[in-house]
Amino acid sequence: MEKRTTFRQWWIGVAFAVPQIVLIFTFFYWPAGQAVYWSLTLQQPWGGGNIWVGFDNFRQILSDPLYWNSVVRSIVFALVATGLSMGIALILAVFVDRGLTGSRIHRVVMIWPYGIAAPALALAFRFMMAPEAGFLSSLNRLWPGLWDPGLDGVDAMIEVIVAFSWKYVGYDFVFFLAALQGIPRALSEAAALDGAGWFRRLRDVQLPLLTPTVFFLLVIDITESFQDSFGIVDIMTAGGPARATELMVYKVYFDGFKGFDYSGAAAQSIVLMILIVALTILQFRFIEKRVHYR
């Protein structure tokens, strides 16, 4: 879409764009290019030159079982957390969309968790799910040693996933509800006249029309699970126990800033970038081909 009316003084336009150009060059394109360069060289942590090593850094991380561990953990985290938050959000949105008394208050409250900083909610959940205090510890009263995210990797993963999902249910809910309310009432009414009950209308009218939203949220949630998980992991488990919750971004941070392995961290960043770009392209393909039922 283009404007018919534009201004002739194009240099003013360029001047308007300068701040953003300077910013994205300095803080986006240069660092992104730098990451590529570092990933192909062996970088000395305290300056002092670097050696060209080609794809050695990639070969090294890809043959490192610890790296694959973080990849697998990230995928498990992304899929379970996304599935959980989207599933719950969809159910809640469908019920709120029915518009019974009290649904207004739900529309207001469900979004609250999304406003909370990931580390803050992580600390809150760490308390609620602590093995010796809070609430889940009641389990340990019945079966001693059943729940201990400090020692058991699976427990730790559950803890992180629950905290993340709690935040993103609210986010997904907003989009699902907006999509549901965007569906013309006439469609549901026509189906009802044809004798379709509530569930039938949900399954055959509303859910198919939600597919674009589902794909969209799928990509956003997975991408967010790579980024927003950092604060949760750092506060709740610090990647432990025994690297059970060491997600990819956490490993980049750890190797780069604690281990001073800039080249390794850069190579990991590149893999992460490729992954996220691939996901984004996937999203645009789906958005381009929005499913229309006409």
């Binding site: 953003q20 803080f27 660092p31 992104a32 991408t223 971004v249 780069g256 960043s269 996220i276 984004t280």
Partner: peptide
């Protein structure tokens, strides 16, 4: 070109290019 250059920045969040951004 400018449009696309800005558009691309949507794809890569700060977290995945954290190490070189820190150097900047």
């Amino acid at each position: 070109l400018l449009f696309w250059a800005i558009f691309v920045t949507l794809m890569l969040p700060l977290e995945v290019r954290i190490v070189p951004t820190y150097a900047v």
